[in-house]
Design a binder for these strands. Structure first.
Length: 705
RNA sequence: GCGGAAGUGGUGAAACGGCAGACACGCUGGCCUUAGGAGCCAGUGCCCGAGAGGGCGUGGGGGUUCGAGUCCCCCCUUCCGCACCA
């Protein structure tokens, strides 16, 4: 981590900056934006509501890759995750427009207010401007008679929590500065307001407000009696059709109106023309804005990777620790500060060091790295975890990476899964790996929730400890139960009530494997085959079932359908149970079925499969070999092909009968058999057959009138 | 508000556009047991029927099709993500 950090620092991908950041008061640590969740703005680890603080912190420049991260070319990822990342990055194309302030008694004018807009085509509809309360020009522009009101509003906005600030459905508030700006397209003077619905952290922290065509501006203008002007009209609207709500139309046939020389143009053409004209005058330019922010990696925790820089007491400033002195280790004599906080800040043995540049006194950085730094590249380290010469073994990287199939929860969409993609691109740029994406194919497994249906968390107290179940039932049972619960990409509340069934299944597997002929379990029917079945038929039934199971299980593995794999293995086991203790259990077909059962069980219940495999080999006098080194068996097509097919017969789409036919029969032959069935005859009574539909030897539907 | 996913028995769930409810849990009955929280067997979507059998059923309403849980349109509900992003 430290070596990579130093490379990032050199490449300008790591930097330290003062910024308003999210702080968890309980954990006493800052968090990345991705790690603050929900409308309530809570810490992803402990659920405590975060607060904003201005702090100097370390960041990774993920925004450098914003555009590249929007492209998922060449990787096969689930649509929901791609969408979440796309929305999180939040690319908006628009324009920067410069408004100049108008001269007045208290201000000479000419100050530049830059705004970002996605609709420069609506510039003629701008009837006011709004600055974020934190905007740096607020104090300068405020007229004396407005000073008191403005200062009160700014102070109130500062006191508000994030949630209050961000709740969408509350009334708009704001205060005019008592100053005007000049609209660059028409020279019109428009009033400048401050309002907390404009965020300092997005765009330029200032907007041109177009109430006719923006919902929020409309609400604000309505509230404060500011003029609302139509500058875009749909094909059915008159140029001055009144607006009773904001009309944001971007339909192809929407046209600009009341927009001077641009009136009558389609909005998209007006968009381009206005931006071009502004650019020519030096009052604007096309811009792209993103919602994603750089990744805040500083953590005030003692158990992360120390950030390898020192602060020189003299004049060298922030000095990276030389690579030859890595790693910077955590101390083992922590001094815990009273009242909590990061012990590294009070542990002198760690803090005191010398400046690598001037040799004078220096203090170590006490922030450690976000643990998501570790998870962003661990899979590269796993290629050669013992390698002491390099973080990543380049030859092994070329040979193995990227990861072909990765599994992770969708809840990591904008954390781990986004950070990892950033790391791939950054590590590629600094030349230590050969690819720009970490995971070729991603599969999202479902998330198991607490019994209460809420996400498991220590603070909610709904965390389930799998070890308890493993202790009671064994790892195979718990593992199989998790697989059996439902599709793998689907989660749900944890409910272990069905685990007994899995345990019973594995005990039955044990029974059929080791007790093929035994009658000691007291089955009263032991020793005889089911009525009307001879030995050859029973053996055939077993072989066919085993190979069909193998065919299905093989296909299910490709689709991660472990729930149906387990179900199929249960079916086969139940069939073996039926023949247990009968002469059929002494046949080669039985042995083959049991052998295949164990081989199919091996990937899903590795321990019991290995145990039964070795016992079975031992009892047959063979030498020991692990089941996990066996190749996956191939099913026998000729066995799978059935001798007779059960054909459902429908009349007008309703199931009426089933007939048994030989495979490969011609349609008219099948039809002859079907039409002779008593139930079919009864159902056709008094009706006229329109046509008969044959579905490839799987079904017959007789359409009647 | 925007975006996404999903609605099937008492429960978890199966079902290339072709037999809805596989496989389990639970429940009911039986067998075996000194006993059973063990094991085995049978039954178990709903309604009518002693049974054979019949009718109805995949959130609601339309549609496409010989045939729809599955495809299309509208609506409802739940969950997830983002949320005054200009």
């Amino acid at each position: 981590n430290q070596w990579i950090f130093l490379q990032f620092l050199r490449a300008g991908l790591a930097y330290r900056q003062m910024a308003p950041v999210d702080w968890c008061p309980k954990d006493q640590v800052v968090l990345a934006r991705e790690q603050v969740e929900g409308v309530d703005r809570v810490c992803w680890r402990c659920g405590t509501q975060v607060i904003k603080r201005d702090l100097e912190q370390w960041f990774f420049r993920i925004t450098k890759y914003a555009d590249e991260l929007l492209s998922f070319e060449g990787i096969d990822w689930p649509e929901p995750v791609r969408l979440m990342q796309t929305n999180w990055i939040g690319r908006s194309e628009g324009a920067d427009v410069a408004f100049h302030t108008a001269p007045s008694e208290h201000h000479e004018g000419g100050a530049v207010l830059r705004v970002f807009t996605t609709r420069p085509d609506t510039l003629f509809g701008a009837t006011f401007m709004v600055l974020a309360p934190e905007h740096r020009l607020v104090a300068e522009l405020t007229a004396p008679e407005q000073r008191e009101a403005v200062e009160a509003y700014v102070a109130a906005a500062r006191r508000e929590t994030e949630i209050e600030r961000l709740s969408t459905d509350r009334e708009k508030t704001g205060v005019p500065l008592g100053a005007d700006a000049i609209n660059p397209v028409n020279g019109e003077r428009i009033p400048i307001w401050i309002a907390d619905y404009v965020l300092a952290s997005y765009g330029t922290g200032a907007i041109m407000a177009v109430p006719g065509h923006d919902e929020r501006d409309f609400a604000f203008a309505t509230q404060f009696g500011i003029p609302i002007r139509r500058v875009v009209a749909g094909p059915d609207d008159a140029d001055d059709a009144p607006l009773d709500e904001a009309y944001p139309a971007k339909d192809e046939d929407a046209r600009l109106v009341n927009s001077g020389p641009y009136s009558g143009q389609p909005w998209a053409a007006g968009f381009a023309a206005i931006v071009a004209d502004l650019e020519a005058k030096g009052q604007g330019e096309p811009t792209v804005t993103y919602r994603i922010r750089d990744w805040l990696i500083s953590r005030q925790r003692a158990w992360g990777t120390p950030i390898p820089v020192v602060y020189c007491a003299a004049d060298c400033g922030i000095v990276p620790v030389p690579e030859s002195e890595l790693p910077v280790l955590l101390p083992d004599d922590f001094v815990y500060p009273e009242g909590g906080g990061n012990p590294l800040e009070t542990t002198e043995s760690f803090l005191r060091t010398t400046c690598p540049q001037c040799g004078g006194e220096a203090r170590r950085e006490t922030d450690t790295m976000d643990t998501f730094v570790d998870s962003s590249w661990y899979y590269w380290r796993y290629l050669a975890p013992q390698n002491a010469d390099a973080a990543i073994d380049r030859a092994l990287d070329e040979r193995w990476m990227p990861v072909d199939q990765y599994t992770g929860g969708a809840e990591h969409a904008v954390m781990h899964l986004l950070y990892s993609r950033f790391f791939a691109k950054a590590l590629n740029d600094i030349g230590v790996i050969g690819e720009r994406e970490p995971f070729k194919r991603l599969f999202n497994q479902g998330q198991i929730l607490g019994a209460d249906g809420e996400r498991m968390s220590k603070s909610r107290g709904n965390v389930q400890d799998p070890d308890e179940l493993v202790g009671r039932y064994g790892a195979d049972t718990v593992r199989l139960f998790l697989m059996f619960m439902g599709p793998w990409d689907q989660g749900g509340p944890w409910n272990p009530s069905g685990i007994e069934g899995i345990n019973r299944f594995l005990r039955r597997v044990w029974t059929v494997t080791l007790d093929s002929s035994g009658q000691e379990h007291g089955n009263p029917d032991a020793g005889s085959l089911p009525a009307g079945e001879d030995l050859a038929a029973a053996e055939k039934t077993l072989r066919v079932a085993a190979h069909r199971t193998l065919e299905g299980v093989t296909a299910d593995h490709d689709g991660f359908r472990w729930n149906t794999i387990v179900a199929k293995l249960m079916e086969l086991t139940n069939l073996l149970m039926k023949y247990r203790g009968t002469p059929a259990a002494d046949t080669a077909g039985w042995d083959e079925a049991v052998r295949l059962l164990l081989l199919m069980l091996a990937p899903v219940a590795p321990h019991i499969a290995e145990e039964l495999w070795s016992r079975r080999l031992a009892s047959a006098g063979g030498s020991w070999g692990s089941i996990h080194t066996e190749v996956w068996p191939a099913f026998d097509e000729s066995v799978v092909a059935a001798e007779m097919i059960e054909l459902p017969v429908q009349v007008n789409g309703k199931l009426r009968d089933k007939v048994s036919v030989a495979p490969g029969l011609a349609q008219d032959e099948i039809e002859a058999i079907v039409m002779a069935q008593p139930k079919v005859i009864a159902n056709l009574e008094g009706k006229q057959v329109v046509k008969v539909i044959h579905v490839g030897g799987r079904l017959v539907n007789i359409v009647v009138r």
